[in-house]
C-alpha cells in the first residue's frame, strides 16, 4: 500500500493522566464478560526495582480490551481471556502496552500463559528472543483463582522483553 502521510510522533503520557484515562479502567470491553475470563495482576517496576505508581497498562488479545492504572505500589489488575492459538503457530498470548511518565513512547510487551509450556516452546516470537531467561520474562506465573501474575520490569535486572515496531 503506498503511503502518503507522514505519521504523528509519540509523546509521553506524562504524570497527570489519571483524570483523563481512568473512566475506561476496569471496564469490561466488550461489556459482557466472556467465558473463561481470568484476572491478570502485576506490578510495573523501574530500574531500581521501585514501583511505578503512574503507569497506564492496556491489554488486547484479539477480542477483549482492558485498561488499568497502576496504584501507589505499581500494581495493576485487569480481566482478560486466554485466546485460542493465533496464526503462524503462535502460542496464546495477550498484547500489553505500558505508558508512563518517562516513557516517550509506549512499551510493547506480551503476556504468555504458564500452563502452555509446549505451545510456548514452539512460539516463533519467544524463540526470536534468543536467550531463554529473557524469553521467560514474557511468561506469566500462576496466580490466585486461576489468574496469572505478570510483572513488568522496565529496566535493569530481569528487564522485561519489549518489542520494536
Amino acid at each position: 500500500m503506498s503511503t502518503t502521510l507522514p505519521p504523528t510522533p509519540s509523546q509521553t503520557i506524562g504524570p497527570f493522566f489519571r483524570f483523563g484515562m481512568e473512566w475506561l479502567s476496569g471496564r469490561a470491553i466488550p461489556e459482557a464478560e466472556p467465558p473463561g475470563a481470568l484476572t491478570v495482576t502485576g506490578r510495573v517496576l523501574d530500574g531500581d526495582g521501585e514501583p511505578v505508581p503512574d503507569a497506564l497498562v492496556e491489554a488486547w488479545q484479539g477480542s477483549v480490551f482492558a485498561r488499568s492504572l497502576t496504584d501507589a505500589e505499581g500494581r495493576f489488575r485487569f480481566v482478560t481471556v486466554k485466546p485460542t492459538p493465533a496464526a503462524g503457530g503462535q502460542a496464546p498470548h495477550v498484547e500489553v502496552s505500558v505508558f508512563a511518565r518517562g516513557l516517550l513512547q509506549r512499551l510493547w510487551t506480551r503476556l504468555y500463559f504458564p500452563d502452555e509450556a509446549a505451545a510456548n516452546e514452539a512460539d516463533p516470537l519467544l524463540g526470536a528472543v534468543g536467550d531463554p531467561a529473557r524469553a521467560a520474562t514474557l511468561v506469566a506465573v500462576p496466580g490466585e483463582d486461576g489468574g496469572v501474575v505478570f510483572d513488568v520490569r522496565l529496566q535493569g535486572e530481569g528487564e522485561t522483553v519489549f518489542f520494536a515496531w
Binding site: D46, G47, D48, E50, V52, A100, R101, G102, L103, L107, W108, L125, A128, V129, R134, L154, Q155, G156, E159, T160, V161, F162, F163, A164, W165
Partner: peptide, 11 residues
C-alpha cells in the same frame, strides 16, 4: 530509570 536498557526485540 524507566527507559529499557536491553535492545528491543524486533516484532
Amino acid at each position: 530509570k524507566r527507559a529499557p536498557h536491553r535492545p528491543l526485540v524486533p516484532m
